[in-house]
Computed example of a mutant assay.
Amino acid sequence: MKKVTAMIKPFKLDDVREALAEADIHGMTVSEVKGFGRQKGHTEAYRGAEYAVDFIPKVKVEIAVADERVEHVIETIVSAARSGKVGDGKIFVEPLEQVIRIRTGETGNDAV
């Protein structure tokens, strides 16, 4: 099993969720986060004063998925989240040693 973590633009969340649902991926955890990569922030004006925004708002989507479905999940996220502009985000894939459903005690793929 793997954990797929995607950092995406907030306005792309609905597109990603819908695309994953169509791909029969339903369980996910979503968090609002802030950060920066190559964008390195930007400046904005508020009431006539300019100020630097060092951290850009992003959405973190985490999905536990069986090994054989990882590539499909990645392709789905990329196609739904891509705008072609700087700051579209990143996807990280990590191994999951164990997954346990608390209610039933199921483990592994059965727990997802």
Rank of each mutant, 00 (worst) to 15 (best):
E71Q: 15
A81E: 04
V78D: 09
K85G: 11
E94N: 14
V78R: 11
G84R: 05
A81N: 03
V86L: 11
G89Y: 02
V65S: 00
I74Y: 03
I77L: 02
R82M: 07
R69H: 09
V65G: 00
T76C: 02
G84A: 07
S83D: 12
I91N: 03
A80D: 00
E68Y: 11
I91M: 14
E71A: 15
R69N: 10
P95C: 02
F92A: 04
I74C: 08
D67F: 06
R69A: 03
D88S: 04
S83I: 09
I74F: 08
G84Y: 05
V78E: 11
D67T: 13
V65D: 00
V86W: 07
G84S: 06
V73C: 09
K90Y: 09
T76Y: 01
D88H: 08
V73S: 00
S83M: 11
A80K: 01
A80V: 05
K85E: 12
D88E: 06
I74T: 06
A81M: 10
V86S: 10
A81Q: 05
F92M: 05
A81W: 03
V65Q: 00
E71R: 13
E75K: 13
E68Q: 11
F92T: 04
F92L: 07
F92D: 03
S79E: 13
S83P: 05
H72L: 13
K85R: 15
S79W: 10
E94V: 12
V70C: 08
V93C: 14
E75Y: 12
K85H: 15
F92W: 05
G89L: 06
D88Q: 10
V65L: 01
G89M: 04
S79Q: 15
I77R: 00
